[in-house]
Amino acid sequence: MSTDTLAWTDVCTVDDILPDAGVCALVDGRHVAVFRVGADGFHAIDNVDPKSGASVLSRGLVGSLGEHVVVASPLYKNHFDLRTGECLEAPEHSVKAHAVRVEAGRVLVALNA
């Protein structure tokens, strides 16, 4: 699907997200974690930790494992790739990754089906 045909939701300003940190946003009724990662830009994944069911991934630690830019769940410490949503330790616990773009200093998210 082209990013031009996605339904974009304005979630915050660029400055509302500290570098190498995340925030939680409600996008079309879905809890989404939006991260600002240094030179890598912005990423969005589902915020609900699939192992616990808690909406906490936005509060995890951001870092890297090899070529993966990840967030570590604050509860079970599983690592989620911010580009794909893949859970590196248990792929069956992967989450969805969502499209992000920045326009005029605002961060916008579009849900991927």
Rank of each mutant, 00 (worst) to 15 (best):
L18P: 02
V37P: 08
A113N: 10
A33D: 07
L88C: 13
D16T: 13
A90D: 10
M1R: 13
G105Q: 12
R83D: 09
D4Y: 00
G29W: 04
V62D: 04
L108Y: 01
D10R: 14
K96M: 00
A54S: 14
D20N: 15
I17D: 11
N78P: 07
D46N: 09
D10I: 08
S64A: 07
G105W: 12
G22I: 05
R83A: 13
L82D: 00
A72F: 04
P91N: 12
E89C: 10
D49K: 10
T13V: 15
E89L: 09
V27W: 01
L111G: 01
P74H: 12
A99H: 09
D15K: 12
W8G: 05
L57S: 09
F35Q: 02
I45C: 03
D81S: 10
A21V: 05
A90H: 06
F42L: 08
G22K: 00
D20W: 14
C12A: 09
L82N: 02
H93S: 08
H68D: 15
R59A: 08
L18C: 11
S58H: 11
V100A: 05
R59N: 04
G53W: 00
H98E: 05
E103Y: 14
V11N: 00
C24K: 13
T5M: 14
C87E: 02
L6M: 10
K96H: 09
A72S: 07
G66M: 06
V109W: 03
V70M: 09
S58G: 05
A25V: 03
A72T: 03
S55P: 09
A21S: 15
G85F: 08
D20C: 12
A33E: 01
C87T: 02
F42P: 08
H98W: 05
S52M: 09
V56Y: 13
V95Y: 07
G53N: 03
V69K: 05
W8H: 06
L57K: 08
A39H: 12
C24P: 03
L26D: 15
G85R: 11
L82P: 01
D40K: 11
L18K: 14
A44Y: 09
P19T: 10
L82W: 05
S55C: 11
L108E: 03
E86A: 14
V56I: 15
L88P: 14
D20Q: 13
K77A: 03
A104F: 04
V37G: 11
I45F: 05
R101I: 13
A21L: 11
C24L: 08
C12H: 04
L6E: 04
V11K: 02
V71W: 01
N112F: 05
N47L: 07
L57G: 07
R106L: 12
S55A: 15
S55E: 14
R83N: 13
S55M: 06
R30E: 10
H31C: 10
